[in-house]
Design a protein around this nucleic acid. Structure first.
Lengths: 341, 341
DNA sequence: AAATCTGTTGCACGCGCGTGCAAACAGCGT
DNA sequence: ACGCTGTTTGCACGCGCGTGCAACAGATTT
C-alpha cells in the first residue's frame, strides 16, 4: 500500500500498513510488535516500534476488538452518586482494571427504568462484562439483563446477589454485621436503632436482618429500625430527624447502627446539630464502608472496611478466566473502631 | 447469507444480515432502521424492528465507528478522586453526555507521568474527544497530548487553560473570586487567609491571585496564604493544623477563603475539632463548588456554585460541532451564602 | 553435509457496518 | 395510461486488525 494520504502529521490516519512499508516488514509483523506475547524477534520489534514512533501510529482497538471478538472493555453501571463510597469504588476499580489492561465505560443509570437502556448501551459497545455497583438492580432487572445479554459476564460488585446467572463479588455481610453487633454489645450499648437503606437491595436485607436477629438472639428483643429511600446523607438526615426529632431523652437509642457510612454521616450531622446531642456520649453511631470522611476529626466513625483492592484484583481474575464455574465470592473485611462508638 | 450459526438464543452473534433475511429486506435497510434520521418508510422500519426484537439484534458500535470514523465516545480523565466535587462532575457529565448519545470512557490517571499513557489508552479506542477534569495536567503534558493526538478535541472542563489548542469550558474564576472577595469584605472580615491547592493548576492561580490582588487593591495589604498539595480534605487538615495550630488567638485570621470545598471541608473540621474554635464566630470559612456536603448542618458552607448542567450541555454542543472556531467559554455561577461566613 | 528443529514472518479471509450512488418504487396531475 | 417528482431500497467497497496456517531462515544435531 502506498501513502495515499497527503498528510504526514499526527492527525493523519496512520495504519499498520503505513508502518509496515516504513519498516520494511509486513502489516502482520507490525501488529505483532504491539502484541504482548507475540512471537517476534527483538530486532524486528525495535525496527517496527521506531517506525511507528515517527509515524505516530497507535493500534486501533476498535478494529482489534471487532476482529477478535474481545474488547477488553467493561461497563461500570452506577446509579447512586450521592453515596461517597461510590467515588472510592470507582477509583479503585478503574485503577486496578487499567493496570491489567482493561478499560472502563462509565454508565450513569438514571433511574430504575433506565437500567435496560444502560445495558443496551453497553451491549452496543460489545463490552466483555458489565459490573454493577449501584443499588437499583432488582432481580427482575437482572433477569431482563440476562435474557438480552450480549456480554459474557454480569458482575455485582460489593453487593451480594442470589441470582444464579450473576457473579457476586462482595464482603460477607453476615459475618461483618455479626462482628458489628457483637462489638456494639460488648461496648455496653443496649438500645440500638438500625438505620437501613432502600429495601430493593439485598445487602440491605442481609445487614439489617443479621443485626436484628443477632440482637434478638441475645436479648430477646428486636431493635427498632427505620428506612432511608437512598444511600444519601441528606435523605438520612431527614429520616433521622423525623424518627428521633421529638423523642424524649429517655426513649432515645444509645447507638445508631447504620447500614453504611452514607447514612451514618447524615445521622451524625443531625444528631449533633439538630438534636443537640453528643457523639458517642449521648448516642453512638456505626457505619459501613470506611469512606475517607470517617477519618475526619468531625466523624471519627466506627465502621467496617471492605478489602476493595483484593476484591478488584479478584474481579480481574474473573474477567480473564474462560472457565464456566461459579465465581461468586464473599470476602472478609475488618472492623475499624473509632471514637463514634 | 444463510444462518451458519447453530445457536438462536440471545448469546448468538446476531448480525444485521440475520435480521435482514428474517425481515425480508437488505442488510442496509436493517441498519437504516436503527439510524435516527434515515430515509426509511415507517412500515419497513416496524417490520425490521420486530425481527430485530425477536432475534435479539443489537447494532455493533465498534463496527459502526470503524466504518464511519466517528465513535461517539469520549474519554474522561480524572486524577484526584479525593475531591468530592469530582463525583458531582462525573455524575453530571455522564448523565448529560448519555442523554445526547455519547458514551464515556472513565480513565483514572494515576499520577502526573501517567497522563501520557492515559491519553494513549484513549487514542487506542479512537475516542472523539478527551475531557480532562483532573488537576495534574500542566502545559507540558498538554503539549505532548496535542502532538500525539488521535482525537479531534481536547477539552478542559471546569478549569481554565491558556493553551490555544485546548478547549476550556469553565466558570469565570476572576469574576467568581471577585464576588467572594467582595462578599467577605462586605461582611466585615478584615484578616483573611487564603488556602490554595497545588500550584500546577491554572485555576489555582486565577482564584488565589484574584483574591489577593482584589484585597490588596482595597486595603493595601496582601493577605496570608498557604498551599495544600492536593484537593483532599485530609491534606487540608494537615496544612491548616500546621499553619494555624499554635498561633495565638490575636493573630488568627477571621476568615479562611478556600480555593474549593474539598479544602474548606478539611479546614472546617480542623478549626472546630483541633483548634477548638467556632465557625463563623471565631473563624469564618468560604469554599468553592457547592458540593452536596455544603448543605449539611455540619458545614453550612458559604460557597460558589458552577452551572454544571449548562456547562455540560455546552460541552455536548462543542462535541457535535464540526466547525474549527474557538470554543473556549467562561460561565458565570452564583455565590451561595450560608452560615459559615 | 544433510537432516532436523525452533523461532520468525507472510498471507487469505473475515469481523459488522457506513458511504455514496444508482435503481426501483409510489404518488400526483394531465 | 403517461411522464414527472420525491421517496425508498439495494449494493460495491472499504474501515484496521486477528486467526490459523504455511513458508522460511538460522541454529542445532547426526
Amino acid at each position: 500500500m502506498t501513502q495515499h494520504r497527503g498528510k504526514t502529521g499526527p492527525d493523519a490516519n496512520v495504519t499498520a500498513d503505513d508502518v509496515a512499508t516504513a519498516a520494511g516488514v509486513s502489516r502482520w509483523t507490525v501488529n505483532r510488535a504491539f502484541k504482548k506475547d507475540a512471537s517476534i524477534s527483538p530486532r524486528t520489534r525495535d525496527k517496527v516500534m521506531e517506525a511507528a514512533q515517527t509515524l505516530g501510529y497507535v493500534p486501533d482497538l476498535r478494529a482489534a476488538s471487532l476482529a477478535s471478538d474481545r474488547s477488553n472493555l467493561v461497563a461500570l453501571l452506577v446509579d447512586d452518586f450521592a453515596n461517597p463510597h461510590k467515588l472510592v469504588m470507582m477509583e479503585r476499580l478503574t485503577r486496578i482494571l487499567r493496570k491489567h489492561g482493561w478499560d472502563t465505560l462509565l454508565v450513569n443509570t438514571l433511574d430504575r427504568d433506565d437500567t435496560g437502556h444502560a445495558l443496551l448501551n453497553a451491549s452496543q459497545r460489545r463490552v466483555d462484562a458489565v459490573i454493577l455497583i449501584g443499588i437499583q438492580f432488582d432481580d427482575e432487572t437482572l433477569a431482563a439483563a440476562q435474557h438480552a445479554r450480549r456480554f459474557r459476564k454480569l458482575i455485582i460488585f460489593a453487593r451480594t446477589s442470589q441470582n444464579p446467572d450473576t457473579i457476586s463479588i462482595a464482603v460477607d455481610d453476615v459475618a461483618a454485621m455479626t462482628e458489628i453487633a457483637d462489638y456494639v454489645r460488648a461496648r455496653g450499648y443496649r438500645r440500638p436503632f438500625f438505620l437501613a437503606g432502600p429495601r430493593t437491595v439485598s445487602a440491605h436485607l442481609s445487614r439489617k436482618e443479621t443485626f436484628l436477629s443477632r440482637w434478638k438472639a441475645h436479648f430477646g428483643t428486636e431493635p427498632e429500625s427505620a428506612e432511608v429511600p437512598a444511600y444519601d446523607p441528606i435523605l438520612a438526615e431527614a429520616v433521622v430527624t423525623e424518627v428521633l426529632g421529638n423523642r424524649p431523652r429517655s426513649e432515645m437509642p444509645d447507638v445508631l447502627v447504620c447500614e453504611n457510612d452514607a447514612l451514618a454521616i447524615g445521622a451524625v450531622d443531625v444528631i449533633r446539630h439538630k438534636l443537640g446531642l453528643r457523639i458517642p456520649e449521648d448516642i453512638a453511631v456505626t457505619g459501613f464502608d470506611d469512606v475517607p470522611q470517617c477519618r475526619s476529626p468531625n466523624y471519627r466513625l466506627t465502621t467496617y472496611r471492605q478489602p476493595l483492592t483484593e476484591m478488584a484484583e479478584y474481579l480481574v481474575e474473573v474477567l480473564e478466566s474462560s472457565e464456566e464455574r461459579d465465581f461468586d465470592r464473599a470476602f472478609t473485611g475488618c472492623l475499624v473502631p473509632r471514637e463514634s462508638a
